[in-house]
Computed example of a mutant assay.
Amino acid sequence: MLEAPLSLRERKKLKTRQTIRREAYRLIAEQGYENTTVDQIAAAAEVSPSTFFRYFATKEDLVLTDEYDPAMIEALLARPSDESFLRSCREALTELVRHLLEHDREELVVRMRLIKDVPALRSRIFDATSPPQRLYLAVLTRRAGVQEPTFAMRITAAALAAATAEAVLQWAEAGGAEDFADLIDRTFAILEDGFTSL
């Protein structure tokens, strides 16, 4: 799902993006999130501030977005067309998280702890324009073959994004001790169950 070959240009862009993020996390570890500026991150990554903003719209997006969204969209669209969207999300996201834990666990832990500890990041994951909510909405409209999302689609995307955000916070608050993939799977199991177990 995540290992499609990249062109030379795409590899260079990915390398720059990863360098910016790596240097940002190093600076944040040294001086804190609020005290770390975009100018400092850009200088450490040896890029201009304008280059930083080509890759990340804001400092918050550096933590909240990643390279896996296209893979997640592709995985969701590849699921059986007669499968419920909840089941598709459960299968695709659980698989993606297992891959992340295997290959990028340390960075994932850093990101989740920042989301938990930094109020600006924590509030953004529950925002209506959060990356997960936009992703779910994009896939729902594409699967339905419509240009504009319906009210039901917006409600579904909002509910899924909120549930995903709660799973992220639960994992971060436990210090990454829980199996994140199992936590995601349980999250979607509760949604699929329609809250009947409550």
Rank of each mutant, 00 (worst) to 15 (best):
L108R: 13
L76V: 10
L93G: 01
C89V: 15
E102G: 05
E102A: 14
A92Y: 00
L77F: 05
E83P: 01
E91W: 02
S88V: 08
E91H: 03
L108K: 08
T94K: 04
L77A: 10
H103V: 14
L96N: 05
D82V: 05
V97G: 00
L86C: 10
A92F: 02
L76E: 06
A78V: 00
R98S: 13
R98I: 02
L86S: 09
D104E: 15
V97L: 01
S84R: 05
R90V: 02
L77P: 01
R87M: 04
E83I: 03
R105C: 06
L101M: 14
L96S: 10
T94E: 03
L100G: 07
L101C: 12
L93Q: 09
R90P: 04
S84T: 13
E83H: 05
P80Q: 06
V97H: 01
L96I: 06
C89T: 04
A78K: 11
L100Q: 13
S81Y: 07
L108S: 11
S81W: 07
H99Q: 07
A78G: 06
S84L: 03
H103K: 14
E91C: 01
P80S: 08
L108T: 15
H99I: 09
R90N: 08
L108V: 10
E106I: 11
H103W: 12
L76S: 05
L100F: 09
R105T: 13
V97Q: 01
E83G: 04
E95I: 08
F85L: 13
E107K: 12
E107R: 15
L93M: 11
E83Q: 14
L86P: 01
R87I: 00
P80E: 08
H99A: 09
R79M: 14
E102N: 09
A92G: 06
L77S: 06
S88P: 07
R90I: 00
E106R: 15
S81T: 12
P80F: 05
P80A: 06
E95R: 14
A92S: 15
E91F: 02
A78L: 06
R87F: 00
A78T: 00
